[in-house]
């Protein structure tokens, strides 16, 4: 198998294959975002990420002023399996020339 074929992007999942062992950004349902190193994935976008940072955004409404209070909570997890049905988008690392 030539390296050209290995790096060809014909379908969306090929882009994710090229991100193996790289840090990626994943947006999930219920206002969650992950950044971590992609170690494994399958066609459902189930994934195993390493050195993960999770950011959860919650919006509360102030009882008196009815103002929206946006809170973000962060935590880190060494290794995380992510079920694919919650994945909204996957962004590969930015490649600089």
């Amino acid at each position: 198998m030539g390296s050209e074929e290995e790096s060809a992007v014909k379908e969306p999942l090929d882009l994710i294959r090229l991100s193996l062992d790289e840090r990626i950004y994943v947006k999930l349902r219920s206002d969650r975002e992950l950044r971590g190193k992609l170690h494994a994935y399958d066609q459902h976008l189930n994934m195993i990420l390493g050195d993960v940072e999770e950011i959860v955004t919650t919006v509360e409404i102030d009882d008196e002023t009815y103002e929206e209070i946006v809170r973000t909570t962060r935590r880190t997890i060494p290794f995380l399996f992510v079920r694919g049905d919650g994945v909204i988008l996957v962004s590969p690392p930015l490649r600089t020339a």
Partner: peptide
């Protein structure tokens, strides 16, 4: 279907093995 995440034990993750298995799976799919 109700699982969001599974936090894995660090000694249960062989990174190289996972990369190989993922590439194999990607070729098969």
């Amino acid at each position: 279907s109700v699982v969001r995440y599974v936090q894995l034990p660090p000694d249960g993750v062989d990174v190289d093995l996972l990369h190989d298995a993922t590439r194999r799976e990607a070729r098969g799919g």
